[in-house]
Design a binder for these strands. Structure first.
Length: 308
RNA sequence: ACUAAGUGUAA
């Protein structure tokens, strides 16, 4: 049984989900009775194999689920955005005297915050506070993100202030969220304040931050500013990725950089992803360069993608 | 005992 358990854990940690399931079956067939730990691994693995229904069925058949069983189920359900099932599981868990851990709570916050369920978001916050959890940067950032997504940027900004006055320091993720919120809600004036704050707080821009900034600037028609950010990438030691280029496509063409774009196709397969290929296809077709679009299409095939 | 929160395409 020890050997099987070790194998199970190795496959689990190594993301070899199918092997994990096989090991579990073999273990059961060899006459061993898997303990709750082993069963928890299978639940998680079934979720990772995208079979949420099977995972739930398997979970319900665990004779003595422990608090980890519940936390595994809850955080996976959160990723699947299955909020009703999350609620049921949390209630059942608490009825048994277990309490959701911080990972489950953060998953829950994020699950409702992303989808404009503001009421539920504050209910989860209330639960967290009543369970005595300290608010962390991550928690604050999810709340701020939730508010930005429903267009309440002013509230989000006052939350930022509250966060700081409670002694928690915002990070790049917090500012990425806020800046995107400002652009999407026509509050560009706030953006420069936020950028100044970041500077004062000594936070440096990472690639996601820069990509977000470029995308927002591009969508607001501020091509020069977006180009400045693009050119500043290498002095920040950042390498543009597929996100960068799919945001910058229209700008590179209007600034006469079509050559740079087609030279991208010489890059390694790993640089590309499906969205970038689709963006380029769409882009070349729209600007009336079907031959270039065909080149992109062929490159896409050699990179092993199938058109969707 | 796995995992944390922020970015891109078409319709």
């Amino acid at each position: 049984a020890q050997t099987y358990m070790t194998l199970l854990r190795i496959y689990w940690l190594g993301r070899m989900h199918n092997s994990a399931v096989e090991t579990f079956l073999e273990m059961s067939n060899s006459g061993y009775t898997p303990n709750t730990f082993a069963r928890n691994i299978v639940v998680d693995v079934l979720f990772k194999l995208k079979d949420g229904d099977a995972a739930l069925r398997f979970f319900r058949e665990i004779p003595t689920p422990n608090f980890l069983s519940y936390n595994i189920v809850i955080s996976n359900l959160c990723e699947l955005n299955n909020w009703p099932e999350v609620c049921k599981t949390v209630k059942e868990m608490m009825r048994k005297g277990f309490v959701p851990d911080d990972r489950s709570l953060i998953g829950m916050l994020n699950c409702v915050g992303k989808f404009h369920k503001t009421r539920e978001m504050f209910q989860v916050l209330g639960l967290m506070i009543s369970l005595g959890y300290q608010l962390t940067v991550t928690t604050w950032t999810i709340l701020i993100d939730g508010l930005c997504r429903i267009g309440k940027v002013c509230l989000a900004i006052s939350l930022l202030k509250k966060m700081k006055s409670s002694g928690v320091h915002p990070n790049v993720v917090t500012y990425t969220t806020l800046i995107k919120g400002c652009f999407e809600n026509d509050m560009p004036a706030e953006v420069s304040n936020l950028l100044e704050n970041m500077e004062d707080e000594g936070l440096s821009h990472d690639l996601v931050f820069s990509n977000t900034l470029m995308d927002c600037l591009a969508k607001s028609g501020m091509y020069d500013e977006a180009t400045t950010v693009f050119c500043s990438l290498h002095e920040r030691n950042l390498t543009p990725d597929s996100y960068t280029y799919s945001s910058m496509l229209p700008i590179l063409s209007s600034s006469g950089n079509l050559d740079l774009l087609s030279s991208l196709l010489n890059g390694p397969d790993a640089f590309f992803d499906k969205v970038l290929f689709n963006s380029m296809l769409n882009f070349y077709c729209r600007i009336g360069r079907p031959r270039l679009a065909v080149k992109v299409f062929n490159r896409m095939m050699t990179a092993g993608y199938t058109p969707d």
